[in-house]
Each structure stands twice: as C-alpha cells, then as structure tokens.
Amino acid sequence: MNDADIIDLFWARAETAITELGNKYDPLARSVAMNILHDRLDTEECMNDSYLGMWNSLPPEKPQVLPAFFTAVTRNIALKRYRYRSASKRSAIMEELTDLITSAPSPEEEIDLAAKVISDFLSALDKPSRVLFMHRYYMGDSVADAAKAVGITENHAGVKLSRMRAKLKKKLREEGITV
C-alpha cells in the first residue's frame, strides 16, 4: 500500500491504518527505538505508544514523507522513555549514542538554537556525509550500520563521524552550547 493511501486511512479514522503502517514501517521504527532503549519490553511499550501517537497525530498532520514522520514520533517517545529510565536504572548497556541523552530534557530555546547550528552544519556537507550523520544520530544506528547505509567502510565512517562531531562541537561552543 502506498504512503498516501495509508495517510488517507488515518484521516478516515480506519483502524487498518495502523496495520498497514506497521506492515510497511514497523521494522524501521522499531530499530530506531531499540537503538535507544536496548530493551525488548521497553521497545514494545514504546512502539505501542508510537502507534497511538500516530493515530493521534494524523489528522491534523499530513506528513510529506510518512516513514520520516513515524520514525520521528517513535524516536521522541523512545528518548523520553530512556530519560525516565536512565536516572533510576543502571543499564548494563551504554552505547556512545545514549551517552548523549541527558537525564532531563533541555530548555527549548537552547535546543532550537542548537538544532539550527546543526542544520547549518549539515547543509554544508555533501549528501553522503549528511546521511551518515543522520543515520547515526537521528536513527541511532550503530557505526557499522550507518556505514553500510551510505556504502562506505566502518572504519571510514568512524573517522568521518568523529571529525564531524569535533567540528560540530566547536560550532556549538561558539554559540555557547555544550553537548
């Protein structure tokens, strides 16, 4: 089923919308959740909330790119969940990625400013580098998976990512933001 039809189903409040969405994009969104939560049960709950979130968002939303919207919803829910969990549970699995999640949500203006700096930074990159960055920090893929997504070696990806981080950190610092 194509994305436009799925969105129509949501707008028509037809429950099959969720089934169709899941058939097409569940693995994608689930992997984003799992990359952040690293826990089967939490991911399960997160996905439940995520489908609910989609149901509640469409309408009024009509996403241009459905999988992007769905993963964004899932990601936000997963981050929230992780934050709740992180202070009270010593997770045995701490990947570099989740080290970047603070225990409390950050103030809005600062986040927006940082997002702008990051967007500007990304706009100056070539497409593969940008996609690599997003796979790692947006989708939460491991370095190996992110490398695969853009067709380069894992080692090359690691090097690229650490340079991008260093540059970005510097730019953020200039705006008075630390990460």
Binding site: Q64, V65, S106, I111, A115, L122, V131, M134, M139
Partner: peptide, 23 residues
C-alpha cells in the same frame, strides 16, 4: 555554557535532512 541534549537537537534539524536520510 548551556548544556543541551544533543540527540534532542538533532531531532529538530531541518526535516528535509530527516527525509533525505530515510529515502
């Protein structure tokens, strides 16, 4: 220095980049 959650900030970048990444 204001300390922010990096992943939160990435979540709010220009959505063209999110779409680009997915497709």
């Amino acid at each position: 220095m204001k300390e922010i959650d990096f992943l939160d900030a990435v979540g709010r970048v220009d959505k063209r980049y999110i779409e680009e990444c997915i497709t």
